[in-house]
Write a protein that binds this DNA or RNA. Structure first.
Lengths: 113, 113
DNA sequence: CCAAAACGCAACCGATGGTTGCGCCGCGGC
DNA sequence: GCCGCGGCGCAACCATCGGTTGCGTTTTGG
């Protein structure tokens, strides 16, 4: 059975730039569109759009602070995302194992045939 | 450190329709564009495009058989993809744990303050 | 108090996921 | 043997998305 996956969460995390942004935010604790864009190969506006996406699915939250807007990772939501990644991985892994077992069984059958 | 991720592999697996296609192929052993499209909410042509993508990154292989073209999952490549999913998940999970430890340490500090 | 820094909004561009429409080809029944 | 149908590929078209440039607005620090 296919793991029930929140496609919004998954596709938010599916973008490589957004993954790197989450990495940076986790490493630094927090960051702004400008600060992140300095460490990424894209412009501030692109980063701002991504932050919007991540905020919409709840993976980060932004709080205005003066003329900046500081973003921080929502740990609970990220944990959910991680859980979904590993759920899908586990589902596929299970199928692969099952296939392998069958293949081996067939092989044994041939051997003694 | 960010897990080294093959963005092509990841983004191939990032699409929800492609994930469902992989699920179906794993469950059935093989399938064609038409047979898959019957069980998916998209047209045969969309499925055919996705099969092209998956083929290009090596997650499936298609062999012509008469007037059909049968596709089958490449287990080794899928295993690689699974490994990358869990690598990223593990990296994030590690960071979350570290953050939690620090938070707890701060809490303890406050308690005995 | 004013200029620099950070932001938001809008227009535009290429790639991609999706559709419809069409034409070609291999196979099975008559 | 051929003819029709089932499956496929190609092409045009559309919406969305990741990315850019450009510009106006707000906040703040010297």
């Amino acid at each position: 059975m296919t793991a029930a996956v929140d496609d919004d969460l998954w596709s938010a995390v599916g973008d490589p730039t957004r993954r790197r942004m989450l990495d940076l935010l986790l490493a630094d604790g927090e960051g702004t569109a400008t600060s992140l864009s300095e460490r990424l190969p894209v412009t501030r506006q692109a980063v701002a759009k991504h932050l919007g996406v991540l905020d919409r699915v709840g993976l980060v939250h932004g709080t205005p602070s003066g003329r900046e807007r500081r973003y921080r990772v929502d740990e609970a939501q990220l944990a959910r995302a991680i859980a979904q990644l590993s759920a899908v991985g586990a589902a596929w892994d299970g199928r692969l194992r099952r296939i392998k077992r069958i293949a081996e069984a067939v092989q044994r059958g041939k051997d003694q045939h």
